[in-house]
Nucleic acid binder design. Structure first.
Length: 204
DNA sequence: CCACCATTAAAACGCCTATA
DNA sequence: TATAGGCGTTTTAATGGTGG
C-alpha cells in the first residue's frame, strides 16, 4: 500500500536503515530534486488516498488534491531531501486537509462517509463489490477516530511512513506518536469488530 | 478531591546489519 | 556462523491538565 514510486530519488526505503536526517552527517548531501511532472504522475494516487483517508469527502477531494499539487509545484525547489519525498508530500497534504477541515467546519458541512452507506453499494461483480465495501468500511471506521489519532494511524500504518517523520510532521514527541498509534489501533480494531458484528446480525 | 486522559521519558524487546 | 551494536517499536510508570 506504500507508494514506492520516486522514493528512490531520496534514497532510503521505508523501515530500517540510517535516517537521512540523522545528525553527524557532515558530508554535503547531493539532493536530486525530481521534476514536478514525475512527482505528479508518481504520487497523485498517494496524495489522493492520503487526503481521502484523512477525512476529505468525495465532493472536495479533487480540490484538495489540486491544492496540494499547486503547493508542491510552488515549493518543490525547496525540498531538501531531509525526509523521503513521500513524507514531505504527506506533510503538505496534512496541512491542506487541516485547512479544508477548518473551512468545512465553518460551513457546517464536514463531509463524512455515512456508515449506513456500507449497505447501499450498487450491485456488480462480487469481488468489486467486496472491495468497495471494504474501502467504505475503512473510511467509515477512520471517520470515527479523533483527528489526532487518525492522522498518526493513516501516516504510520496505512502509508508506512517512519514514525520519526510522522512525529516531526505533526510536531509531537515520537513516543507520543506511538502512544497515539497504539490507541488508534485499539480503536480501529474495536470499531472493526463492531462493524463485523453488525454485518453478521444484518445478514441473519 | 478524584477520575480520566494525553503526554513524556525510560526501559525492554526484537530485528537487522556489520564484523570477526 | 556467532555476536555485538544500532535502531525502531512497544510497554510501563510518572506527570500534568481538565472536567465532574
Amino acid at each position: 500500500m506504500t507508494s514506492e514510486g520516486l522514493d528512490h530519488v531520496t534514497e532510503r526505503p521505508h523501515g530500517t536503515g540510517p535516517r537521512p536526517s540523522s545528525a553527524g552527517a557532515g558530508a554535503a548531501r547531493a539532493v536530486c530534486v525530481p521534476a514536478f511532472d514525475d512527482v505528479y504522475r508518481e504520487f497523485f494516487p498517494f496524495v489522493w488516498r492520503g487526503a481521502r483517508r484523512l477525512g476529505v469527502g468525495d465532493a472536495a477531494l479533487d480540490d484538495v488534491v489540486q491544492e496540494v499539487f499547486v503547493i508542491v509545484h510552488r515549493r518543490l525547489h525547496t525540498f531538501e531531501g531531509r525526509s523521503s519525498l513521500s513524507t514531505w508530500l504527506f506533510g503538505i497534504t496534512l496541512r491542506v486537509v487541516r485547512d479544508h477541515r477548518r473551512h468545512a467546519a465553518r460551513r457546517r458541512e464536514r463531509e463524512t462517509v455515512d456508515p449506513d452507506s456500507l449497505h447501499c453499494a450498487a450491485p456488480g461483480p462480487s469481488e468489486l463489490l467486496e472491495r468497495e465495501q471494504a474501502r467504505r468500511r475503512l473510511h467509515a471506521i477512520l471517520d470515527e477516530l479523533p483527528d489526532e489519532r487518525r492522522e498518526v494511524f493513516v501516516m504510520a500504518d496505512l502509508e508506512n511512513l517512519p514514525m520519526g517523520d510522522v512525529a516531526a510532521l505533526l510536531g509531537i514527541n515520537v513516543n507520543t506518536g506511538y502512544a497515539r498509534l497504539r490507541a488508534a489501533r485499539q480503536a480501529f480494531e474495536a470499531a472493526l469488530r463492531r462493524h463485523q458484528a453488525r454485518d453478521e446480525w444484518r445478514l441473519r
